[in-house]
């Protein structure tokens, strides 16, 4: 009796969770297709007119370009720094390596807003007022922990005897690393880079303190549209973002598999 009840409860909770989690996404997409200028669900006909207005929005293209620029550069630098550090922490036997690992992952658990104000004051103190370099530096701190976390986990599971095996089978050490370690760890690289990139693209609480009128990242621009002209154009942009995020996840699934991306 209790077992059956438990089963029912578990499945109901899972179904409810999925509906609950997808509800805001579905509603956003529906609103973006609705002809009504106030946010209401489409009743009889659908329209793409709000999507046509997206291209005419002030500053949207610039903010998208800036956001992608910052995210790509920050991800590239984080991959480089994170790979070196993860190898060091996973393979080294020096004192304090766990502390270093925790330290490098810790920004994940710190409130973004506090990081933002701290960086704002720090950059001002250093005389760095330009938005672009500030954003780049700050976003390294946002992306690096994701890369570091997945790579250390991947390296911890990596069997270094594979490199020995490749060497005895005829590969030099560098070639063994390249032909064995890199492909085996590729899922960790991809997962870390992907989530780090998404976190950078989505970041609001750090960026808000470091942007200026000419350099607005996409989330800041979006909030501004919401404040200025709340019409379904924002819903259309949101729907496009939902679509792009789905594409990124599908790509990730093809490359890595969703379960590995979810860290399970």
């Amino acid at each position: 009796m209790i077992r059956i009840l438990a089963r029912v409860v578990a499945w109901v909770m899972l179904a409810a969770s999925v509906v609950f989690l997808l509800a805001p996404l579905v509603v956003t997409i529906l609103v973006s297709l609705s002809p009504s200028p106030v946010f209401s669900l489409p009743t009889d006909r659908l329209t793409l007119s709000w999507y046509q207005r997206v291209g005419r929005l002030d500053g949207l293209v610039e903010s998208v370009v800036l956001t992608l620029e910052v995210a790509s550069v920050a991800t590239a630098i984080s991959l480089l720094l994170g790979t070196l550090a993860a190898i060091s922490v996973a393979r080294g036997r020096f004192w304090g390596r766990e502390t270093i690992a925790t330290f490098l992952i810790s920004p994940l658990m710190l409130p973004g807003l506090v990081l933002g104000i701290a960086m704002l004051q720090y950059f001002r103190m250093l005389g760095l007022r330009a938005a672009l370099p500030s954003l780049l530096l700050a976003h390294i701190v946002i992306v690096l922990p994701f890369v570091m976390r997945t790579l250390t986990a991947g390296l911890a599971r990596f069997d270094f005897a594979l490199i020995d095996a490749a060497r005895t089978l005829g590969l030099s050490y560098p070639r063994a690393v390249l032909q064995v370690m890199v492909p085996v760890l590729a899922p960790s690289f991809i997962t870390g880079a992907l989530f780090g990139f998404l976190a950078s693209v989505d970041n609001y609480p750090v960026s808000i303190f470091l942007t200026d009128v000419y350099h607005r990242t996409l989330p800041i621009q979006l909030l501004q549209y919401l404040g200025e002209s709340p019409d379904p154009t924002v819903a259309a942009i949101s729907a496009i973002i939902i679509g792009l995020t789905m594409l990124v996840l599908i790509a990730g699934d093809r490359l890595v598999g969703l379960n590995r991306m979810a860290g399970v």
Partner: peptide
């Protein structure tokens, strides 16, 4: 689970 997790907070908040 992954789609909402990866999606922009602002988009979800808007929803």
């Amino acid at each position: 689970l992954l789609l909402p997790l990866s999606l922009s907070v602002i988009v979800k908040a808007f929803g």
